[in-house]
């Protein structure tokens, strides 16, 4: 079997976040994420981080799974923590061959990192606790333009087909002794393989369109959805948005 990188691998667990209505969940968490990336100081950033971690705990997602997704963000954030302290001017902490590290810079670097970390942690209870197709449908229910919803839907479906095709091509190349090296030959070969993949995807696109038409596709497909807000959904919505609003009030009051 193929190992798919699935964000909704643990969507069948049971937790308050899993039971939370997908529409309300998306709206509430998006508001909270905005609030979190806007906090102006470290103290509030850490409060936001603690909040995010609490929501993650409430979602009962396995820690390993969570860390797997969070670690990518670190690759983006680490440069900030390293560069910021040297580029922002202010109180000097130390001087190294003309490079000055400042207190303000360090604080700003950490602030950026903590905000990003909190935001990414919040994405997990928002997205990883619902089957992805349900999330897409929820976006449709939230009046996202039909065109975008369709694009998400087909992309979600065919990304897996593409992954399999890519792996197949890659294995076929490896089976004939191809090794990834940084020489012209390897680059050319990869270029050609990607070209083939592209052509094949294009042809598949043609066939999928034929199949769509064969079942009466008219560019405005609907899906059947059953969403219903219950009391607990309202409670969670109020809690999450309330937390967001509090952060904003304290930040800018």
């Amino acid at each position: 079997m193929v190992n798919y990188p699935e964000i909704d691998k643990y969507s069948s667990l049971d937790s308050p976040m899993h039971r939370f209505d997908p529409r309300a969940k998306i709206v509430a968490f998006i508001i909270l994420i905005f609030a979190v990336v806007l906090v102006p100081n470290l103290k509030l950033a850490f409060i936001a981080l603690i909040g995010a971690i609490l929501f993650l705990i409430a979602s009962k997602l396995p820690l390993r799974f969570a860390l797997q997704h969070i670690k990518w963000v670190f690759l983006f954030v680490v440069p900030f923590i390293i560069i910021m302290p040297f580029t922002v001017s202010g109180t000097e902490i130390f001087n190294f061959h003309g490079l000055t590290m400042t207190y303000e810079g360090l604080e700003y670097g950490i602030l950026v990192a903590v905000r990003a970390l909190s935001a990414v942690i919040l994405v997990l209870p928002m997205i990883a606790t619902t089957r992805f197709d349900v999330t897409i449908k929820a976006l449709g229910e939230l009046k996202m333009p039909n065109m975008l919803v369709q694009m998400f839907m087909f992309t979600y479906r065919y990304i897996f087909v593409f992954v399999v095709e890519f792996q197949r091509t890659w294995r076929a190349m490896a089976a004939r002794g191809f090794q990834l090296k940084t020489n012209l030959y390897a680059l050319k070969t990869i270029g050609r393989a990607l070209g083939m993949l592209f052509v094949r995807s294009y042809e598949r696109g043609d066939r999928v369109y034929q199949a769509l038409r064969a079942r009466g596709y008219t560019a405005k497909p609907k899906t059947l959805v059953e969403f219903k807000m219950r009391a607990s959904d309202y409670v969670w919505t109020v809690v999450i948005i309330g937390f967001a609003v509090s952060l904003l009030i304290v930040s800018f009051a």
Binding site: F154, R157, A211, G216
Partner: peptide
Amino acid sequence: VGMVFQDPDDQLFMPTIFDDIAFGPINL
């Protein structure tokens, strides 16, 4: 006229089997 294509991956374009089977009837 219903048409079953050779490669099922060309034909199953919705995220779940339910949605896929519902797709045609909805279009009707």
